[in-house]
């Protein structure tokens, strides 16, 4: 009944290395499950010789073209170098979000440390690529053209702060959405159980939170997909900044 309990980690294989707890937990298991499912879809189900794709292969090819088009539109043809990264991020987050929907499972993306790590991968990729490709020219990203000189310091300060806060918003958006959605589902689910425990009219009233749970489930399914999409889309836009900093 505790809505927070679903986020707690349990050690499946305890492991300590150099005074650090590196145990294989339920979170690790679900990460590997997500990776295995993505590989199943993208590798096992894809027949190299299929002239006409089957259902699963169609899904894999749709996913490929969906992300490929996203990268191409947001970051241009030169952004296709980062297509594997964006694709891996999208599929990993999507699968983690979707697996989390199954009752009694664990949602990997509901932990800030995971989403922050993914956001930092993007952040540092953007920094490294931006400076490697454009050198100091990359700093132009913080100096928009056509701004009067007397407001320039303010604009530059805002640009720098917004750039530095990117990994924060990037990671918290996904984390908070998944966390809040799962807590909400659990709370309404808890109401159903609570009301069913009552006799007579109270048990009948359980229909109301149950209807809410069903509706929330649909909404959260949308959110699960949407957050993976938003994460991938923002990654594309940040990469575009790294490749073409002149706006």
């Amino acid at each position: 009944m505790d809505p927070i309990h679903q986020f707690s980690l349990s050690k499946l294989i305890p492991l300590r290395v150099l005074e650090r707890d590196l145990s294989f937990t339920n979170s690790s298991a679900y990460m590997l499950l997500a990776v295995a499912l993505v590989c199943l879809l993208m590798i096992v189900f894809v027949d190299r010789n299929a002239k006409v794709p089957g259902r699963m292969q169609s899904m894999a090819e749709s996913a490929y073209e969906f992300i490929a088009n996203m990268v191409r539109e947001a970051a241009g043809e030169s952004g296709m170098k980062f297509f594997p990264l964006v694709f891996s991020l999208f599929m990993f987050i999507l699968l983690c979000n979707l697996i989390g929907f199954i009752p009694y499972t664990f949602t990997v993306t509901s932990h800030i440390v995971v989403t922050a790590s993914l956001a930092l991968i993007v952040f540092f990729t953007v920094l490294v690529v931006g400076f490697a490709k454009n050198g100091t020219h990359f700093l132009k990203l913080f100096v928009p053209s056509g701004v009067p000189i007397y407001v320039l310091p303010l604009v530059v300060a805002i640009e720098v702060i917004s750039f530095l806060s990117r990994p924060l918003s990037h990671s918290v958006r996904l984390f908070a959405n998944m966390l809040a959605g799962h807590i909400l589902l659990k709370v309404f689910g808890g109401f159903v159980v609570l009301l069913l425990g009552l006799k007579g009219l109270g048990a009948l009233a359980a229909v109301v939170p149950f209807a809410f749970t069903v509706a929330l489930m649909a909404l959260e399914l949308l959110v699960a997909f949407l957050q993976a999409y938003v994460f991938a889309m923002l990654t594309c836009m940040y990469i575009n900044d790294a490749l073409h900093p002149g706006h």
Binding site: I4, F7, S8, L9, L15, R20, D21, L22, S23, F24, T25, S27, S28, M31, L32, A34, V35, V38, C39, M42, I43, P84, L85, F87, S88, M91, F92, S110, H111, I112, V113, V114, S117, L118, I121, F175, L179
Partner: peptide, 27 residues
């Protein structure tokens, strides 16, 4: 639970392993 810092090391390690494997296999 998401703010229990003693779980971070394990999560980071396994995220690095699984996401690394995924990235390699995909790319």
């Amino acid at each position: 639970p998401p703010f229990q810092s003693e779980t971070f090391a394990s999560q980071l390690l396994w995220l690095a392993i699984s996401f690394g494997v995924l990235y390699l296999l995909m790319s």
